[in-house]
Design a protein around this nucleic acid. Structure first.
Lengths: 281, 281
DNA sequence: GGCAATATGAAATAATAATTCCAATCGATA
DNA sequence: TATCGATTGGAATTATTATTTCATATTGCC
């Protein structure tokens, strides 16, 4: 009999499929599990995998031996190698986009650069959102009578979209935008029954920070979206989110911030509907 | 001080980079190794990693503790999780996000939904951009003395970002935004030596359409970003782009539009620099 | 230059995990 | 249905690996 040890995942896979019919019941069970959950094999321990697959650890070892390995450990190496090698197509594509963009191949490259930056940012935030903070922010905002939205300059587009969406959801809101002197007055109306969404990224617009400070002194709770824990916004905020946006050509993406902002807004709208109407519960 | 344990790789990475300067020598050595060889951390044993990084295993554990983990094992989990996630292909991940979002599993699902919508839109536009149109638009805008930016409601955030970016690039521009009656007057100043970027999606804001009509009658060339060839904007435009944004919970993403807008803006800036300054060549 | 606090190395120990072993069960065959 | 060989479960054993400890070195500070 041909007693080659499958050195790579594909060979192993083929071998397993070939012999599938003639395998003992429990061994076949593991075989199926292994092909369905290769990541678990790569990371798990013999005991944990065996439990997930519904067999005994010893059976797992028999499975490995059946296919010419000398134990579970060497079988596992194949599954780990696979993970190392299989560089995700997504990241490759992104890297390619970025590379093309960076070598400056015309205007198309600029476009690719911005698409790549946006994708990267989204990808990033998707794994990074702190759910507790998210829930806390929603709860806080859902209770507010009026939601003030505070952002300048680069962050202003996000604020204006939040204001638009809040309006559509019939949630009372006030955009604090004007570069003129009306802000101070607007802010002075805010009370602890209201709430603020403040957005600012480095270099932080001084006006945003100052207004956030004033408003926090009025005991209005603040939800901040910013870019690091050292952000001056963070210290005034009840809840804050760290969003790392990738940049291109000196302009940072807004896609992650936008996605977070939209999610917050819609979630607040939903929560209000559930708890029956606006204002403090 | 807020001593959160970085639960995902990106957060950890950021934290490491932030503290890099203040870390003890050997710890820093491991930090560098970890960021350079994340796969090794994911798969190796404490001893093997320590050897590769040129330190003692105990130092590796101290490194983990320094960052809030209770030992090497829990640190390693972060590196493993990263591999797991990286490895699912882009489309798989998107599908998973969307599925989770659609089965309505709480607020987190809302967030996932918006991230998925944004990613989808970006993915879409990336393969779809017409390069000739793109070049034409850039040429047209680069020649303009003043670039007027025209958008309301949902599209307004994009317009405001364009205006911000144009400003940063020192390109004269005028945002036509006010809901009050000043727009007509503003528009009346525009001439054929200027240009317009107009953005509108169904349901098209009547004001945008009307203003586009008027301005096109003044022979001001228009670059439009809209959502279909039936868009009333398209008929007034010299060049127009079709952008299909995915939506979630009734709110469409803006990510593709944003990326296109940024690319246009920056490309125009670049073209102007190349052809020596602003205005008509 | 001396002292305290911090960092490091190396080995001992504790924990965890893989493997082996043996008894029990199952299944085919006569 | 009795029997043999193959298969399986579960605990015992062995191995590997993480963690702790403690002595030593280094650094920062007065």
């Amino acid at each position: 009999m041909d007693e080659r040890v499958p050195r790579n995942f594909e060979t192993l896979r083929t071998t397993i499929l070939e012999r599938r019919q003639s395998l003992p019941k429990r061994i076949a069970q593991i075989a199926a599990y292994a092909l369905d959950n290769p990541d678990d094999i790569a990371f798990g321990t013999a005991a944990s995998i065996a439990a997930s697959a519904g067999v005994q650890p010893s059976t797992l070892i028999r499975f490995a031996q059946q296919f010419g390995f000398d134990g579970f450990t060497s079988l596992q190496l194949v599954f780990r190698e696979r993970l190392r090698e299989r560089n995700s197509s997504y990241d490759e594509r992104l890297a390619a986009l970025r590379a093309k963009a960076e070598e400056g191949a015309g205007h198309r490259a600029i476009f690719d650069g911005f698409v790549a930056a946006a994708s990267t940012s989204l990808n990033d935030i998707s794994g990074r959102l702190n759910e507790d903070h998210f829930e806390a922010a929603i709860t806080l905002l859902a209770k507010a009578e009026t939601i003030y939205v505070l952002a300048k300059r680069r962050s202003y587009p996000v604020a204006s979209y939040i204001a638009y969406a809040l309006g559509k959801l019939k949630i009372r809101n006030q955009l604090i935008e004007s570069a003129a002197g009306l802000n101070a007055e607007m802010i002075s109306f805010a009370s602890s029954r209201d709430a603020v969404i403040a957005i600012s990224f480095s270099p932080y617009a001084p006006a945003t920070i100052e207004e956030a400070r004033v408003i926090s002194e009025q005991r209005v709770p603040i939800v901040a979206i910013t870019d690091s824990s050292f952000s001056p916004l963070a210290q005034f905020a009840k809840v804050w989110f760290e969003v790392a946006e990738a940049d291109f050509a000196g302009f940072r993406s807004l896609s992650a911030t936008m996605a977070l902002a939209m999610a917050l807004t819609v979630a607040v709208g939903e929560k209000r509907r559930d708890t029956g109407g606006k204002g403090k519960a």
